[in-house]
């Protein structure tokens, strides 16, 4: 389990692992399947949020999907800066900075299409958010949590 001992299982049929000190919140808001919350640091709880929903037209073209996701963020948050983005055959990853409630935050996102055997295809987005000054020290841990995502039945 990559050293992660908290396993959160969601009824949509996937699991995410996190360190034992983290908290899992299921279905915290419409459209958000799972939120994994780290202990408070710098008056903020760094987190990884899983959003799972029906496929969209954009997600059929990963480059267009990434650009649409960045554009959407740019319209919905303050001081958005797209810092990095990469697209491969499996999905995309992007890194951005923005401001919320007078805090400078860093957002890292991973997204892909999830073909569920016997079910419809879904779009999955994992969004990790952390105060910017903590990004360097937490980036590897956040990426490890994101990489632990597994369809139920394939979890190691």
């Amino acid at each position: 389990m990559n050293g992660l001992v908290l396993r959160a299982e969601h009824s949509l049929g996937f699991t995410l692992d996190a360190p034992d000190s983290w908290e899992a919140v299921h279905d915290p808001s419409p459209g958000v399947a799972l939120a994994l919350l780290a202990p408070e640091a710098a008056a903020f709880r760094p987190n990884v949020v899983a959003t799972v929903g029906p496929t969209t037209a954009e997600s059929g073209d990963l480059g267009a999907w990434q650009r649409a996701a960045a554009d959407g963020l740019g319209e919905s948050v303050d001081d958005f800066q797209l810092l990095d983005a990469e697209v491969d055959e499996g999905g995309f990853r992007q890194l951005a900075a923005y401001v919320d409630a007078h805090r400078s935050l860093t957002l890292e996102q991973w997204a892909w299409r999830w073909q569920r055997p016997g079910h419809d295809t879904l779009d999955v987005t994992l969004s990790a958010t952390v105060p910017t000054l903590l990004y360097d020290v937490m980036a590897d841990e956040l990426a490890t949590v994101a990489a632990s995502w597994r369809p139920l039945g394939e979890a190691k």
Binding site: A42, D79, Q81, L82, L83, D84, A85, E86, Q94, A97, V99, H102, R103, S104, P131, T132, L133
Partner: peptide
Amino acid sequence: TPESVPAVTARTVGLGPAP
């Protein structure tokens, strides 16, 4: 705010996606 320094720096230097 001090935690804004990386973002202000990134804008100043034009940091952005690149292969």
